[in-house]
Nucleic acid binder design. Sequence first.
RNA 1: GGACCCGUAGCUCAGCCGGUUAGAGCGUUCGGUUCACAUCCGAAAGGUCAGAGGUUCGAAUCCUCUCGGGUCCACCA
Length: 726
Amino acid sequence: MDKRYKHQEIEKNWYTFWEKKGYFRPEANKVKTPFAIILPPPNANADLHLGHAMYTVEDIMIRYHRMKGDATLWLPGADHAGFETQFVFEKKLQKEGKSRFDFDRETLYKMIWDFVHENRGNMENQLRRLGFSLDWSRQVFTLDPEIIKIVHRTFKKLHDDGLLYRDNRLVNYCTKDGTGFSDLEVLYVERTDPLYYMKYGPFTIATSRPETKFRDTALAVNPDDKRYKSSLGKTFEIMGLLGPVKMTVIPDPEVDPDFGTGIMKVTPAHDPHDFELGHKFNLSVTPIIDFAGRMDFSWFLSQKNIDPKYRARAEKYHGKKVKAARDLMVEDLKADGLLIKTDEKYTHRIGTCYKCGATIEPLPLPQWYIKIRPLADKAIASVKSKKIKFAPKRYEKIALQWLTNFRDWNISRQVVWGIRIPAWKCLDCRNDEWIVTDGNSPSSCPKCKGQNLEQDPDTFDTWFSSGQWPFATLEVNSKKDFGYFYPTSVMETGYDILPWWVCRMIMLGLYATGEIPFQTVCLHGLVRDAKGQKMSKSRGNVINPLSMADLYGADALRMALVFGTAFGNDVPMSEDKIRGMRNFSNKLWNIGRFVKMHRESYRNQKKYPENLSVEKSTNAEDKKILGELTKLTEVVTETVEEFRFDKGAEALYEFLWHSLADKYIEAVKDRLKNYDRQALAVLTHVFITSLKLLHPFMPFITEELNKQLSPENRVPLIVSPWPVVK
RNA sequence: GGACCCGUAGCUCAGCCGGUUAGAGCGUUCGGUUCACAUCCGAAAGGUCAGAGGUUCGAAUCCUCUCGGGUCCACCA
């Protein structure tokens, strides 16, 4: 054995050994207890980041249960990550001077498919490099045909059960990326914009969006506002930039009399609140901004007998981007004497695209919505009745808050890279009825028998398919897997996707299978830099997990991620911390060398302690270390069961370094020189047992040391029985 | 406006279902090169446990408030 631990050489081979031996592949076995975790599928096209390395805690649970003798399954997958991946791909196109508009749908899809599959292997090998004992024989991709079938099936079921509807309402639309989003994807940021006070007939109104005024359909005031009481229900002529228009004053209790002038213009096509209001008062929804984010005045320009002055204005605005048009209009308002004042320091929260940062434009667009209340209520019941538990416990309350506040879920995306929605429209019937299938194209319209059917061009929100991941992954492998491993034992992921993913899995899992998808939700914190700052490319503080594994060993990286921070809290990470754990690896290595050296020398002297019971020792030091080992066994077992991996890791570190190496080994040196059989027996027993306890945390080095100590007849640690306290 | 988390040694964090001299990693200082390890060993310095009040025989730990950081949610145009 080398004086220094060389992880580069040791870590290389063990994974292939484990994988080839089939240790990662459980059988459904009635005698055994099933234990299953479905890996949160990383994006197929992207390299792993440090956050993914947190899946270490899943490997800890998996290895622990495997050693306990459970039928243990850790199922890997890859996510097509719809919009996310298309976004990345478009960036790539951009660099090549192209855009998504240069290709038809099929070509674009094929190009992204190839792009994803070129990169997919990276992610998988990186998971292997970190020692994650995943059952690759059961690996699944979110775009596998069998998965798509299941997703279609669920969509159809929702449709048949009346839990799905199509509605033309305002969606959160990113005009840059060309797709709508659910409420969760909108990122609200504080911004300072001018608030314009403009003359509006006999009134003055305040708005930050003068460009939408051309499609105002009413004026709203608080019914209790004395100032406007007499105007309620009356219609006024209002002079605008394109001539006079007529508008009625309607009551709306939501209007805050203290904001602006207490009177609000109503633009149903471009504001969610106004949309609702418009619905109530039967106002028309007529957009003036198109899906490319440009002003559309064609409705005005197509009119006959327009005043040339107004025509010129409309032509000037037409086709301009929102912000540019707004500036032009403000100038014209000034010229017409309609702008009364401007509050330049008006701060408000504005919805932006979480990916590209562009302002989200609420636009009317027909989309598929899931009625979320019936699904969420069942999910709430499962959580409240503790059928689904949370670790750390505080996330239960947060999950309940989310589940209580969910609104109907828009699952349509105007993205090519995804699962196409299995809904068709008959072009002959010209009605609004949709034909929803389980995926197969309908041959003809069931009503008119027409053959002119057109499929909805949209794809599913990725979370709609990944929300079905726990049962879909098990079903597609074999019916036996689903019956045996479902509901899965633990769902472990980052707390940041609790609403996006975990809540949706609970809702869709319960809906599709009638059972909870997992028994415990276990949430880890976000990995941050040494100062607790978020890691980001722009900050330049990103730590790459693979280069850390290469430098210090995957074991060291794994240990660093669980050590020293209460599980569930954010994890500050630094190279120093990983280096510290590399040093711990080296300490283990040298304990191993020490033990091995003495075992060999005993053997040469024919003093080898064959099957000597360690319990019989009367030596005080032996008794002490054995007592501590018992305690350690209890602590590690308990803390892993309780999802407090940090405590287990710390107990192991403390015991191995400061009890075993610093104290016991120092104390036992003289006895070893005198070939005291009992001493070597205890030392070996204690070390091997603690290696077993450490194996889930640091699989590579422990496996190697175990082999070094008795290469001839020792079973690999990965399948060694978990130590128990008698 | 609502919810949650955090403020403990220079730094990053444990401890917080109350009870011996408040711990760890890294850092600092001092001393160690013989037969496991300098990726090491031994020793040391360093904390009004954010602040105030309360409960208690006893509080870093429970309760209330204040201050300071962070995160998330909410249709004020």
